[in-house]
Amino acid sequence: MILHTVNKSPYADQTLLSCLRAASEKDTLLLIEDGVYGALKGGEYSALVESAAPRILVLAPDLEARGLLDKLSTTIATVDYAGFVELTVTHDKVVSWF
């Protein structure tokens, strides 16, 4: 079980796509920093993210900072930094994509 983090916007960069190619069903992908742009409702990547094999989560403070709390895809959950830390404990390792 791996916790993947992605910190790049899929509108600018292929990092999210690369991560999804390597991530497994049992993994979790946490979108942080500009990675949160991948989880926007009605955005070009929402269908991809909503149907992705790993569980997708978004780091709430990064979403809030960018004024996007009202734009998050309705099927995607958020965590705060406390949740981020807990995810690193409950997964075997962290793989960062940037």
Binding site: I2, A22, S24, K93, V95, S96, W97, F98
Partner: peptide, 9 residues
């Protein structure tokens, strides 16, 4: 990714 203990990217 699964089988190596530490992954550095």
């Amino acid at each position: 990714l699964d089988t190596n203990a530490v992954v550095l990217s």
